[in-house]
């Protein structure tokens, strides 16, 4: 177990390094001169040259990468071209906002999807099963922005229950919570279909196992068979998908945050791309990718704890 954990953690290092190289290269090989963008279109050539030297853009790419990565490791991701604020600070604030949104979305999607999936599996071929699975299939194909826009239309404009957009007060205040609900409903809602379908097939598989038959044969109540024997084993793949779905959540957060003007990483990244604020683009994407890799690592480790059969090979 200890060896597995160590190896799995060590394997993450090259991935994160590769990720940082990729983010760095993508933006450095991009057409357009960052120095020109900083200086503005009308700047005289010597000013542009000065900025280029100042930003280290006249150095070889390797040197630039080394400088970027060693600064990044110290928590310095450069400065925003637009606001001149430290990218690390902007990213940290946005990160917390995205974190709140993603966790809220995750909690409510799990609360809805897992019961639906379990009931659909236990009552296989029932009306509930068919109806919920058809709904799930339809839900999988809905574009997330439409769900968000409809949530705004219904709950903000028609019913007036929640604010249209923005962050409101801190998360623990009533105002902050009111602002959180619609974006979290949207982001979590889009995850429910896949999660419910997976829970259903996972529970179905567990219900077909020998140990479930044994449990039934010894006269255990069906409720206990499901709860104690099937569910425990069925939730293993669900844990993986919950982790993997963080990819979807981070991706969905980009859209959700844009629709609801939620000041998170996704919105920061999109705004930065549209204003060509490269240090911010680089910082947000790097942090998002590293977060994602870390979550995958945690999922693997949790998986190993839940299933003692897993050994690293």
């Amino acid at each position: 177990m200890g060896v597995y954990v160590l190896r799995r953690v060590l394997l993450t290092v090259p991935t994160i390094l590769g990720t940082s190289v990729l983010v760095f290269l993508i933006l450095h090989l991009a057409p357009g001169d960052p120095a020109m963008i900083v200086a503005g279109p009308t700047a005289p050539p010597d000013v542009v040259a000065n900025i280029r030297t100042h930003l280290g853009l006249d150095q070889p790419v390797l040197v630039q990468y080394w400088r970027y990565i060693s600064n990044a490791l110290r928590g310095d991701l450069g400065r925003s071209i637009l606001t001149r604020r430290s990218v690390s600070e902007e990213v940290a604030t946005a990160f917390l906002n995205t974190f709140e949104l993603v966790i809220a979305a995750r909690i409510w999607s799990l609360l809805v999807a897992i019961p639906i999936g379990v009931v659909a599996a236990v009552k296989r071929q029932s009306i509930f099963d068919k109806l919920s699975m058809v709904t799930a299939l339809l839900g999988l194909s809905l574009p997330i922005f439409w769900i968000g826009l409809m949530a705004i239309w219904l709950f903000a404009f028609q019913l007036g229950w929640f604010p249209i957009s923005g962050r409101g007060g801190p998360i623990w205040s009533a105002d902050g919570l009111r602002h959180l609900i619609l974006p979290a409903l949207t982001l979590g809602g889009i995850q429910i279909p896949a999660l419910a379908r997976l829970t259903r097939s996972s529970v179905l598989e567990a219900l077909g196992q020998d140990y479930v038959r044994t449990a039934r044969a010894k006269g255990l109540a069906e409720r206990l068979v499901v709860a104690k024997h099937a569910l425990k084993n069925a939730l293993l793949p669900v844990v993986t998908i919950v982790g993997l779905q963080f990819a979807g959540l981070l991706g969905g957060a980009v859209v959700t945050e844009t629709i609801f003007s939620w000041p998170g990483l996704g919105r920061l990244a999109v705004t930065a791309i549209l204003t060509r604020d490269f240090p911010v683009v680089q910082g947000t994407i790097l942090v998002a990718a590293v977060t994602f890799v870390t979550i995958n690592l945690l999922v693997d480790l949790v998986y190993a704890v839940l299933d003692p059969r897993i050994k690293y090979t």
């Binding site: 990720t19 969905g252 990244a269 683009v281 994407i285 990718a289």
Partner: peptide, 18 residues
């Protein structure tokens, strides 16, 4: 593995950024 360490839409956004 490196490409997969980006959520797909985020990778797309990074490439569009470039």
């Amino acid at each position: 593995d490196v490409l997969l360490s980006f959520p797909q839409i985020l990778l797309a956004i990074a490439i569009v950024a470039a």
